[in-house]
């Protein structure tokens, strides 16, 4: 079986700030990492390959530096990497991103299961996974917390909804997005790190995909970012120290009304 994991290289969001002068993102010096949710997708694909046999391909769309993210996944054990990189892809929103990824998947052709992290830590949209499924007209199971069983033609997986767990059966191929609960990602071993250096990373540009150029990048995107700004600062709060009883009394005076109205709803 061929397992394909779509991953994204993201900045460490805790380091992201807005330059108050230019009102643009300060990206210099910010650490790049594999999106945390994607680590669970990579790990799950590796486990499925260990159980079922087959191949794990990791794929990402991004600038040339994003190859580092693929190498990291290959050091965990992924067999090959595909980097979709082209100036034509720049400025893609989730529609254009999922379009580009789906065109690359069509080129790969023989996939059984496509795995994505639930969402990326920078954009937090959770839209690319279902977007790929829609572009490819494949079934989707979002927010997967556990794969109960899998065969070459079907899968049973539990997904996390707001009020519980839904166990679904789907035909394959299918698109999954996974949450943290599904596994604990392995650390790369030294042996795998050395082997990963020998493994192949394919570089595909827009010309390698049988795609409509008008649907790529900024041109193909349906949404535009009009402006960015810093979130409003929370007002300086009040902090008490000292005797427990006194602190609680002070707190109760401040919050009783709010608690009462929030509870009564």
């Amino acid at each position: 079986m061929h397992f394909i994991v779509c991953i994204k290289q993201v900045p460490d969001t805790s380091e992201i700030k807005i330059d108050p002068e230019t009102n643009s993102l300060i990206r210099e010096g910010v650490t790049a990492m594999v999106n945390p949710f994607d680590m669970y997708a990579i790990e799950e694909a590796l486990r499925l390959r260990e159980a079922m046999g087959g191949l794990v391909t990791v794929m990402t769309m991004g600038p040339l530096q994003a190859e580092t993210a693929l190498r990291e996944a290959m050091a965990m054990g992924a067999d090959q990497g595909i980097l979709l990189s082209d100036p034509a892809f720049a400025g893609s929103d989730t529609w254009a991103t999922s379009y580009t990824l789906s065109m690359a998947l069509r080129r790969i052709g023989d996939y059984s299961l496509i795995l994505c992290g639930k969402q990326a830590a920078d954009g937090d949209t959770a839209q690319v996974g279902p977007g790929i499924a829609a572009h490819m007209d494949l079934p989707q199971i979002t927010f997967v917390r556990q794969i109960e069983r899998i065969s070459p033609t079907g899968i049973v997986a539990a997904r996390m909804l707001d009020d519980g767990s839904e166990i679904l059966e789907s035909s394959l191929p299918c698109v999954l997005t996974v949450v943290k609960e599904i596994n604990t990602p392995r650390l790369p071993t030294l042996k795998n790190i050395l082997e990963a250096k020998k493994k192949e990373v394919l570089h595909w540009t827009a010309r390698d995909l049988d795609c409509d150029f008008k649907r790529l990048g900024r041109t193909g995107s349906l949404t535009r970012v009009l402006k960015i700004f810093s979130p409003p600062m929370r007002c300086q709060g009040q902090t008490w120290t000292g005797e427990t009883k006194e602190m609680i009394q002070a707190l109760m005076e401040k919050v009783s009304e709010a608690i009462f109205s929030a509870k009564s709803k």
Binding site: S98, V128, F143, L161
Partner: peptide, 21 residues
């Protein structure tokens, strides 16, 4: 969970721009 699973599938197919959350 439902909205964030459903909306991107719908938006992608009808070429609608979608803004999350």
């Amino acid at each position: 969970a439902i909205g964030r699973s459903l909306a991107p599938r719908v938006a992608t197919i009808i070429d609608a721009g979608l803004t999350a959350d």
